[in-house]
Every structure is written in structure tokens, then in C-alpha cells.
Amino acid sequence: MTLADRLLLFVSITGIVLLAYVTWQPSAYADRVEIISPSGRKIVSLRHDKTFFVTGALGKSELRIKGERIRFVTSPCQTKFCIHQGWASHSGDLRVCLPNKVSLRLLGSSSQFDSLTF
């Protein structure tokens, strides 16, 4: 590899790093979660940490909100896939427990609006 090749390689890598730095945008963060269960649809704020239950088709799913994220903690389903999906933290993220018919979709008014007047 000649010195010119090395220089070209260096400039290319530096350019890629700089471009990534300049253009990278964090994913849209969410501030609410839409919870759908057999009892209906409700919107819950992610601003306040808490643990609560939602009753599904099989029984109660335990949900935890922490640091503007939400996850399934316990579930009456057999697969526990919903728990293994872990935390949902970005607008549009979806966590579903199909057997218990409970779904969580994160909503990010913040991804579009900085604030809402009401």
C-alpha cells in the first residue's frame, strides 16, 4: 500500500465518521403508550414510572414503565415471548402478547410536536 493509498483510506474513514456524526438522528422518542386489551384502548403517559396490571384474555399482564420505557414484566401466556421482547422505548415500537391479546404501541407526539395545547 502506497502512501497515497493510505491517505485515501484515512480520508475515506474520516469522511464516513464525520458524515455519520453530522447526519445521525436519534430515534423519535415516545411520551405515551397505547394499550389495547380485551377491555378496550387506553393511552398512558410514559412520564411517570409505575408498575400496573392490564387484564387480557388469559389473565393479568404486569407492565412496568421506567425512564420513559415500557415492558411486559409478567404474563399468563405460555411462551413469555412478550417478556423476552424487553423494553420498548421509541415512537412506533410495538410489544404484543398475542395469547393474552394485549398490545403496547408507543406514541410519540414528541416526534412530531414538542408540546400539545389543550
Partner: peptide, 18 residues
């Protein structure tokens, strides 16, 4: 600029405009 939404008075979760 800061961008805000005006909440719909009857449709929960919807906005009238930004």
C-alpha cells in the same frame, strides 16, 4: 421553531392542527 399541536376537543389523542 418549537412546534406544538392543538388538541382536538372531542377526538381523544387527535390534534386539530400544528
Amino acid at each position: 421553531p418549537w412546534y406544538v399541536g392543538i388538541t382536538h376537543p372531542r377526538q381523544k389523542g387527535a390534534v386539530l392542527a400544528g
